[in-house]
């Protein structure tokens, strides 16, 4: 099992979610996050005061999946979240040691 963690542009959440749903990904966790990469920050102006805002709003999606589905999920997210411009985000894939469904106590792939 692997955990796929994708940090994407907030407006790309809907197409990514819909595409994952179509390929029968059963669940995901979404968080509003802030950060920066090569895109760097932006400048904001409030009345006379100008501020450099380094952390930009992004959305983090976390999906845990059986090993054989990981490549297709990563491919789907990459296709759906891409605009081709700087700031599209990143995908990280981690090994998952164990999954337990709290309601039934099932473990492993059956619990994903």
């Amino acid at each position: 099992m692997k955990k796929i963690e994708a940090i994407i542009q907030p407006f790309k959440l809907e197409p990514v979610k819909d595409a994952l749903h179509k390929m029968s990904v059963q669940g995901m966790t979404v968080t509003e996050v802030k950060g920066f990469g090569r895109q760097k920050g932006i400048r904001e102006v409030y009345r006379g005061m100008e501020y450099q805002v380094d952390f930009l709003p992004k959305v983090k999606i976390e999906v845990v999946a059986p090993d054989e589905k990981v490549d297709s999920i990563v491919k789907t997210i990459t296709e759906q979240a891409r605009t081709g411009r700087i700031g599209d985000g990143k995908i990280f894939v981690y090994p998952v040691a164990e999954v337990i469904r709290i309601r039934t106590g099932e473990t492993g792939d059956a619990a994903v």
């Binding site: 904001e44 409030y46 005061m49 501020y51 450099q52 805002v53």
Partner: peptide, 11 residues
């Protein structure tokens, strides 16, 4: 305010 001019004080 503490940090005025150095910290961002955004509405």
């Amino acid at each position: 305010r503490k940090g005025y001019g150095t910290e961002a004080m955004i509405p």
